[in-house]
Write a protein that binds this DNA or RNA. Structure first.
Length: 1061
RNA sequence: GGGCCCGUAGCUCAGCCUGGCUGGAGCGUCCGGCUGAUAACCGGAAGGUCGUGGGUUCGAAUCCCACCGGGCCCA
């Protein structure tokens, strides 16, 4: 027997269900249940396996799972191969940590072989952890066939793409200023840079550049990176703007007119005089003395236009001095300007951020150390106008947090110009959720996208497949592993990873020289970016790809707009000329309870496994989904997760309640279907049957629109409000009926139907508890697991908007009645003689009439009286009260007499008379007559003492609290029943067990009044009652005494007959 | 500096697209009740300048503009 434990314990549920799934191979059967049906293809964005799954990852994975389960249940053959992103800087950093090393030099020291082996081991470990965690979370992907970006078969797709681009001219090498992380010693792509902006405090210095012909005259520049001054080659001005020459003491300073005030206040210049004014254009060509010319000797050989003023449109009048220091080696814009004017590209800093020999006096210093020395030197030379600090946003390495520096270096790029328009057009065809994520955000990003720097000077990654001849410089691209076999020198066995691939040497086809591999590895975003064709091994067999591509659905967090969403589109545009996905669901992050970003340094990271341990998989899943739209951030608050647990506990209780009575009566859901029992259905049955079907329709349409939170909330609301609060409350008494009446079975059928419809829908959100409960309710005709059920379709024939409307009114009546009872201190178990309902509208009236008996039942009233719309009960007393403002002046001292007379006359008569003739002659107590006019009085309504009012949205309810003997004894009987039930409960008796009881009540007269109701009490409590008789049964007795409103009650319950005493 | 999202009760969120009944819900708090689903459940109450200021309109939480605050993305 599948009895339900008394409380919902998620640990127990998860354990049992997980065992059931694994023993019956449910995951595989679920994934294969629609083989051959139309395909729904999903492309898994591969998580980087450098660490454990945290709650943010879990959120994303829950959305994936919900969609995949839904599409599966809808009947699609869902493609859901897993995938793991195995390479790249993040993994390297983790390996470094494990090996306790921290730089590229250290890697060379321990040897690349060892490093790469360790990387493999680390990846193996985390893949295992991620799979375990994901499966526990319920995300059912095809993990056995999961793609791994480190596999040679996978990497060959990257090579294939690059070779194609090499041949088409889309892959180019060039010198460029790129952002470097000096700690990781590798350049970052723009989408990596985009992820690392942080607010920091930096130097803010104003520096004087003396003009060569007139050293008292200085150009003033502003910079936040003093160390780049060592590589200064020019000063740029905006030729269109006006500049001024200031006299400050003996010096003359040149700055932009528009920035005059801000510079003077920032640099603390007072007492100046404007002596000259000219356009920026007139400054062009002016030669200046390099402020660090003597310290950095290389500048001696730099010929004009080096160290002169150049025109540049980008010079802004928003900040700085209007004169911009130009270091072509250290700034992208500087580089471009330098290229236009033929400036030397001077870059005296290595990729590790340390000045080289070219750096002269700064050689051997890190850029940070150099910055201080630069400031000191300038200060000594009298060229430092002002040193300050500024807080601004500056890009940092997205993985290690080191501030980036811009350096010139030789890098490999994928050119965007050929495909840019195509990408924009293709993106417009993609369905984005929400729309703005695609149109505004991604669209804007695409408009501004630049060439993609794909080379990285690291170790653990897909190697760049370009070999260059050491003699003549010609290059070749290698497109596959097999091609490596053609090499002149090669290791055995050949491996595609570094360092082995570096040992492959080709013979140059042009000059016969030796060709060595370009020592780069590739941006890891390129690895995951080719997943659309690499994950299905396109190179070896294109058939699968052709069935899946473009993918129906992908979903990742919003940061992937610039990451994976972008690189997928980029490579797909290059390879196939179209977008690789049709629908993108954008998600957002999980923040901590206080809205703070979770980070290891802050120590507030919540690991998915801890969350699952603490609050349960189902609770966490439902919480994450129901809290907000997927594209909004959520603050994770454990207390709120517990609320979800409470709601699921209510569902548990409902099933437990149902199951108890189903078993008791051997209810047969196969024969006693809702269709068979429909003729015996009560209004509440027809209502819940309609509600559940309306719900399914609503949930389905919300899922289709990716309004998952709305779907989840409507489910929760249905469980708590409709199913538990309303329906179970309504059918409880029917369930308690002892005989197997059709009306009871009709309720069983309705409840069984509702649960059987509900659980599969719920299972995509909370698979564990849904499965657990499904197991207790499924019939022999049902699939073995809830995960193998088809998505329920609403039974349109059961949808009945009319009864849903009517019930809304009925519930309103019930609430209003309970409200009135509460005020009148009339407990629900004390029956009411009658309630009177005054409806607000014809619709409310007809609803009340239709559900009259339901309302009687639920309010414990003998009768329901329905008035006309807006009508008051006839017992409402109407009184005339004087309006003293009007009557006072006229009646004077007679006012009390008038008041008294008004209270005596018949209200209707006075009203009619006044309405007809405008006046009424009032006979006062002293016999005199007083004329009252319209407006002299008001009509006030007063309820008689036996009526108490309660107000609802649709009705006003008056309860009649007057009592008679019959009502009183019934109330008493109910009090007795309740006490006996408490005792049964305390003894934990079986529901069906019948026990003998002695009930005695003081005073005797009250006990007498109970006599006719003994049978009723016996029926309700499954007891055999002796009233006030002998105190001993001669067995073991449980006895309790109670004080009721009007009497003292004592109940003795016989436990075991005939056992001693 | 530019783009996008958000700002409604103590907390978490609906409502806004398509202007109109007294701006809702859950949780929390307080009061009361109920009790064979029971570490549940029900009723009631308190609690809101709908971020601020303008504008459009007979009417604005809702549409428009500006500003303030928070977040994200880009410079």
């Amino acid at each position: 027997m599948y009895a339900l434990p008394p409380r919902y314990d998620f640990r127990r549920v998860e354990e049992e269900v997980a065992r059931f799934w694994s023993e019956n191979n449910i995951q595989k059967r679920h994934m294969e249940m629609n083989k051959g049906a139309p395909i729904f293809s999903f492309l898994e964005g591969p998580p980087t396996v450098n660490s454990y799954m945290h709650i943010g990852h879990a959120r994303g994975r829950v959305y994936k799972d919900i969609v995949l389960r839904y599409q599966t249940m809808k009947g699609f053959d869902v493609w859901r191969r897993g995938g793991w992103d195995c390479q790249g800087l993040p993994v390297e950093l983790e390996v470094e940590k494990k090996l306790n090393i921290s730089s590229k030099k250290d890697i060379e020291l321990i040897g690349m072989e060892r490093f790469v082996e360790e990387a493999h081991r680390l990846v193996d470990y985390y893949i295992g952890e991620w799979r375990k965690g994901s499966e526990r979370l319920g995300l059912w992907l095809d993990y056995d066939a999961a793609y791994q970006t480190r596999d040679e078969k996978y990497m060959e797709h990257v090579w294939h793409l690059l070779k194609k681009c090499y041949e088409s001219g889309d892959l180019v090498v060039s010198f460029k200023v790129v952002p470097f992380c000096p700690r990781c010693e590798t350049p970052l792509s723009s989408h990596e840079v985009a992820q690392g902006y942080e607010e920091v405090e930096d130097y803010s210095i104003y520096v004087k550049f003396p003009v060569e012909d007139d050293v008292k005259k200085c150009l003033v520049i502003w910079t936040t990176t003093p160390w780049t001054l060592a590589a200064n080659e020019a000063v740029a001005v905006n030729p269109e703007e006006d500049y001024v020459e200031l006299e400050v003491g003996k010096e003359r300073l040149i700055i932009a007119e528009k920035l005059l005030e801000s510079v003077c206040s920032n640099a603390g210049i007072t007492g100046y005089r404007v002596v000259n004014r000219f356009t920026g254009g007139s400054l062009v060509g002016l030669k200046y003395i390099h402020p660090l010319g003597t310290e950095v000797g290389a500048h001696g050989s730099h010929q004009p236009p080096a160290h002169t003023v150049l025109p540049a449109e980008f010079v802004s009048m928003e900040e700085g001095t209007g004169l911009v220091h130009i270091a072509p080696g250290h700034g992208p814009e500087d580089f471009e300007l330098g290229k236009r004017h033929g400036l030397p590209v001077f870059c005296p800093i290595g990729t590790n951020g340390v000045f080289t020999e070219e750096g002269g006096r700064f050689a051997g210093l890190s850029y940070r150390e150099a910055a201080e020395l630069v400031i000191k030197t300038l200060s000594e030379k009298g060229l430092l106008l002002k040193e300050g600090r500024v807080i601004h946003t500056y890009p940092h390495c997205w993985r290690c947090g080191t501030p980036l520096i811009y350096l010139t270096s030789r890098q490999w790029f994928l050119r965007i110009d050929r495909i840019k328009r195509l990408m924009i057009e293709e993106n417009a065809k993609v369905k984005w959720y929400p729309v703005w994520a695609g149109q505004s955000r991604f669209g804007e990003w695409l408009e501004n996208a630049e060439d993609w720097c794909i080379s990285r000077t690291r170790v653990w990654g897909t190697p760049l497949n370009i070999w260059t001849c050491s003699k003549c410089g010609s290059t070749r691209a290698v497109g596959s592993k097999a091609e490596l076999e053609e090499a002149e020198k090669k290791p055995t066995p050949i491996k595609m990873h570094r360092p082995w691939v570096d040992r492959v040497v080709f013979r140059c086809g042009k000059c016969g020289g030796e060709m060595y591999r370009e020592p780069f590895v590739l941006d890891t975003w390129l690895d995951s970016g080719v997943a659309h064709f690499a994950s299905v091994d396109w190179l070896r067999d294109k058939r699968l790809f052709e069935r899946l591509f473009p993918y129906d659905f992908i979903t990742e967090a919003i940061d992937q707009t610039r990451g994976w969403f972008y690189t997928l589109l980029f490579t797909s545009a290059l390879m196939f000329g179209r977008a690789p996905y049709k629908t993108v669901l954008s998600q957002n992050f999980v923040l901590d309870k206080y809205g703070k970003k979770m980070s290891k340094s802050r120590g507030n990271v919540l690991w998915a496994s801890d969350a699952m341990d603490n609050w349960g998989v189902d609770n966490v899943r439902l919480y994450l989904v129901s809290k907000a739209q997927s594209w909004e951030t959520i603050n994770f608050d454990p207390d709120e997760v517990k609320q979800i647990n409470q709601a699921l506990n209510i569902l548990w209780n409902v099933v437990s309640f149902a199951k108890t009575y189903f078993d008791l009566d051997r209810y047969d859901p196969v024969k006693e279907t809702v269709w068979a029992m429909l003729g015996y259905a009560e209004p509440e049955d027809r209502w819940i049957l309609s509600r559940v079907n309306t719900l399914i329709r609503y949930v389905t349409s919300n899922i289709e629109r990716f309004e998952m939170h709305e779907a989840a909330r409507s489910l929760l609301n249905f469980i708590v409000e409709d199913l538990s609060r309303t329906y179970v409350r309504a059918v409880r008494r029917r369930f308690w009926i002892e005989e197997r009446t059709p009306k009871k079975i009709a309720a069983y059928a309705a409840l069984h139907y509702v649960l059987r419809k509900l659980l599969p829908v719920l299972s995509i959100f909370t698979p564990y508890i849904s499965e657990y409960l499904y197991q207790r309710l499924k019939t022999v005709d049902d699939p073995i697991s809830v995960c193998l059920v088809k998505w329920p379709r609403p039974d349109e024939s059961l949808i009945n908007p009319e009864i849903e409307d009517q019930m809304q009114v009925a519930e309103d009546v019930i609430t209003a009645t309970l409200n009135a009872r509460n005020r009148a201190r009339r407990k629900l178990r004390w029956p009411l003689r009658r309630i009177i309902i005054s409806p607000n509208s014809p619709r409310a009236k007809s609803s009340v009439q239709a559900l009259r008996s339901y309302i009687e039942r639920m309010t414990n009233s003998f009768s329901v009286e329905v008035l006309e719309v807006g009508q008051k009960p006839s017992e409402v007393l109407r009184k005339l009260v004087p309006n003293p403002a009007r009557l006072g002046p006229r009646a004077g001292k007679r006012l009390p007499l008038v008041s008294e007379a008004l209270s005596r006359v018949r209200v209707g008569e006075v009203q009619d008379h006044v309405a007809r003739s405008g006046r009424y002659s009032l006979v006062l107590g002293d016999g005199s007559i007083f004329e009252i006019l319209d407006g002299d009085f008001q009509v006030v309504e007063e309820l008689p003492s036996h009526l108490v009012e309660g107000e609802g949205r649709f009705v006003r309810v008056y309860i009649d609290v007057s009592e008679d003997e019959r009502l009183r004894s019934l109330s008493l009987a109910n009090e007795v029943i309740r006490r006996i039930q408490v005792m049964r409960k305390e003894l934990n008796l079986e529901i069906v067990k019948e026990v003998p009881c002695v009930v005695s009540i003081e005073p005797q007269s009250v006990q007498e009044s109970l006599k006719p109701l003994i049978e009723y009490i016996e029926e309700e409590t499954r007891t055999r009652i002796s009233l006030g008789l002998g105190r001993d049964f001669g067995g073991r007795v449980y006895k309790r005494e109670w004080t009721l409103e009007q009497a003292a009650l004592s109940v003795a319950m016989l436990l075991e007959e005939g056992k001693n005493e």
